[in-house]
């Protein structure tokens, strides 16, 4: 199988622009030379992957404009060739790439936008579950609350962003391409992303610092009293912390982000 392996290695190198040894294997036709024909594949390779990024990152495109987006996409394609059979997952490393790679690292709002948009996509086609309802949880016996732990739906994502990427993302279609500005926050702001309905789009909202801390504790498997303890650092009294915990729990249940609860 050596000849087949070599040909395929050369084709991959041609597509990715690293070598042109494939030329020698390919025939000219009466109408077109081999370089013209081979370029069809190389051009389509880049365009297909750029299109995938365009679909996943409309906010980034609105920030960068088509020319800069194209340049950024080609740099990403070269650094992170696709390793998944579905092009759906090609863009998953873009935020990390933008955060550390010059010149993109010089505009950190881009990495924040990419992080936000990828999380929206992950929430969009995460697994479906039947979220726990307030009524179901209300049926738990009083002694359950001492050890009650929450689990969350697969579509839940939680981000900390230093730029107002979600607010800018909502304006992405209202400004000319390349002119979407993303303001800096004073400090990192925590965001909750989830999908309320199986066939719906992802939604998002910012969280106050105490909610983010409580959610982190809950995601880490802390029992309900521990969540109250976390909140007491933000509250005037233990009573106020317990009240806030109950309010947050109700909000999470109503949003449909709690998958289940267990105790004992």
């Amino acid at each position: 199988m050596n000849a087949l392996v070599t040909l395929q290695a050369e084709f991959s190198a041609w597509m990715r622009g690293s070598a042109d040894t494939l030329r020698a294997r390919v025939l000219d036709t009466e109408k077109a030379d081999r370089d013209t024909l081979l370029r069809v594949y190389r051009d389509a390779y880049a365009l297909r992957l750029i299109e995938a990024l365009t679909t996943d990152y409309p906010g980034l495109l609105a920030m960068a404009g088509p020319a800069e987006f194209d340049m950024m996409a080609r740099a990403y394609i070269a650094a992170h060739p696709s390793r998944h059979p579905s092009v759906r997952w090609f863009g998953r490393d873009l935020a990390d790439f933008l955060a550390v790679t010059p010149p993109f690292a010089g505009t950190p709002d881009a990495a924040d936008m990419a992080r936000f948009e990828w999380a929206l996509g992950e929430a969009f086609d995460a697994a479906d579950t039947e979220p726990l309802t307030f009524e179901q949880l209300a049926g738990a016996p009083p002694e359950a609350w001492a050890t009650l732990r929450l689990s969350f739906v697969p579509a839940l994502r939680r981000l900390s962003l230093s730029y107002q990427a979600p607010q800018a993302w909502q304006r992405r279609d209202t400004v000319p391409p390349g002119e979407l500005d993303v303001s800096a926050e004073d400090g990192a702001v925590d965001w909750l992303i989830w999908r309320p309905a199986a066939d719906g789009d992802a939604q998002f909202r910012s969280m106050a610092p105490d909610e983010a801390a409580a959610l982190d504790a809950a995601l880490g498997g802390a029992p309900f009293p521990e969540i109250c303890a976390v909140l007491s650092a933000y509250a005037d009294s233990a009573e106020a912390a317990a009240e806030r915990a109950a309010g947050l729990l109700r909000a999470w249940l109503d949003a449909g982000v709690v998958d289940d609860a267990a105790w004992g």
């Binding site: 389509a44 297909r48 390793r83």
Partner: peptide, 21 residues
């Protein structure tokens, strides 16, 4: 074939029509 050495090229690439292939 659509890729090589773990890299997906996301295109329908022609095979050589040989006995080996």
């Amino acid at each position: 074939f659509t890729g090589h050495a773990g890299i997906n090229l996301h295109d329908l690439l022609p095979l050589p029509y040989t006995e080996e292939a």
